[in-house]
Amino acid sequence: MMLRVICGHVQEDFRVPDDILISVIDDDESLCLAMVGLIRSFGYRASGHGSAEAFLRSGEMARARCIVTDIHMAGLNGLELKQLLDEQECHVPVIMMTARTEEALLMRARESGALCLLQKPFPADALIGWIDKALAT
């Protein structure tokens, strides 16, 4: 994925820290790309992964400051990923997303220890708001 590093003239309304890496995991390719683009437009570095397994392989687990993941994915799903992170004592804040509406699923997401659960489609401000919160912890 082409990553353009924003540097030089720093605008005051831009939170520049492009050393802050945010990992996006979604098996829907275009949505994953869109989210990476959105996060970058806010001045963070972002990288996208098509599955939880791909994310784990990438070695970003140690560097990411926040993980934004879809719940419903082939292979390891978002809830299972969160559980795995907990087991490995990785305390990176996790923002979960889903397009599903089943109450039981939403409950389980809330109980998983994720920072928050966003229901797709959500406004960009909501995502950025939560990312800001994640980075503040």
Partner: peptide, 27 residues
């Protein structure tokens, strides 16, 4: 929902790039 969410997200990112003092047309 998936493509609609992607469209909305891309749109918002686009607006952000355009809102810069030097809009990034390429982006």
């Amino acid at each position: 929902n998936q493509p609609l969410a992607a469209i909305a997200t891309n749109g918002e990112a686009g607006l952000r790039w355009l809102a810069r003092p030097e809009p990034d047309v390429e982006e």
